[in-house]
Design a protein around this nucleic acid. Structure first.
Lengths: 201, 201
DNA sequence: TTTCCAAATGAACAAGCGTTCAGTTAAATG
DNA sequence: CATTTAACTGAACGCTTGTTCATTTGGAAA
């Protein structure tokens, strides 16, 4: 009993994820403020009061979803282990970003739309994670500029521009649509590469 | 009395715009669902009931803001009167988009974040206006492809990518920040141009 | 000065909100 | 079989929501 291990057969390790899944889907669809705890509970098939076995309050539920998404993102980026020269790492980053975000439209939606519904402290925590992710791209751009491969007058702005462009895919992409991930990656990598490398002009 | 002319000195032609201004600012800040009619009324300095002299309901208030923004956008684009070859028109579109959106951060925020809070009919109406705007850019890209100036394998996707990139400026731009509109236009036009024109590679 | 009426008040409404908690349930433990 | 307890119910709490409407207000018109 040294560890607070969950009981075998307990429902909580099943209901917990179901609560988070329902909350994510509903919030992505209708927005944090527009979704009630009763709606989330109904989606799971329990009463509203039972939700409080899994979250201290609604705000923490939102924060956990957003922080979890950013943590997963950073861990996956780490695991992608970008290497090589700056051009190769930029391609790696571009393809990683698309491949990670494409299957997670709800997380993307919530993470970019519900920032203003976080308390100040929670916002600061999520913002720090997001900044860490952006900095990876910014450093690739700075390295490429130093190497003479990229022509990027303002790496910070280019970082924001590229991430906005890539994340915007979620605005139109629908699973099972006319384009596969591979095709999308190819199109966007082409645009990204051209946007940051010097042109003949 | 053939015309329902507003009485001289009537408050309504002053209060009306003030209601819309307050609603826009509050909704941009906190989101449509999180803002109450009482909050909007308090911002204007009237009671909640008086709002219904200026809008039939909360939903219509949101819709009018969003439709108004899209209508203004399309009218301004028309007035910009883009001419010349496809490259010149692309530059014109890029600079127009930045110049129109930079001074209107609240409208941009609301127009891109509150789509899901519109009723189906209202959504369809706003979406049609947005599509009309996107089509202007898409046609420029198609023309440029035909002229052999652009290398754009999928004009529709490139349209979405460029608009996401340009509109993303609102995510980081703050009036009075380190960069003027001219500088931002130059940086983004450079990226847009390179992203769509063929590279030596 | 009296009349008029657009504009705004302020109270009321039914409904829904996040959250709490005493009580019930049912499965695992001893 | 008896006991324990995590999981859940269902009712209740104080408060806020969008909207309505009879009544009051104050400045322009006559």
């Amino acid at each position: 009993m040294a560890v607070m291990a969950r009981k075998q057969g307990s429902h909580s390790d099943i209901t917990g994820p179901r609560v988070r899944d329902a909350a994510l889907r509903l919030i992505a669809r209708h927005g944090y403020a527009a979704v009630s705890m009763r709606q989330i509970a109904a989606e799971v098939g329990i009463q509203a009061g039972a939700l409080y076995n899994y979250t201290p309050d609604k705000q923490t539920l939102l924060f956990d979803l957003m922080q979890g998404h950013m943590t997963d993102l950073l861990a996956a980026l780490e695991a992608a282990d970008l290497q090589g020269n700056s051009l190769a790492r930029l391609e790696g980053f571009t393809r990683f970003h698309i491949r990670f975000h494409l299957p997670r439209p709800d997380q993307v939606f919530v993470s970019y739309m519900e920032l203003r519904n976080l308390t100040d402290d929670n916002f600061a925590a999520v913002e720090a994670l997001r900044r860490a992710y952006e900095d990876v791209l910014e450093n690739i751009l700075r390295d490429g500029e130093a190497e003479g491969v990229f022509a990027v007058p303002d790496p910070r702005i280019t970082t924001m521009a590229l991430i906005a462009m890539l994340t915007g895919i979620s605005n139109w992409y629908r699973a099972g649509g006319r384009l596969e991930s591979d095709k999308i990656e190819a199109i966007y990598w082409d645009m990204v590469r051209r946007a940051v490398t010097a042109s003949a002009r």
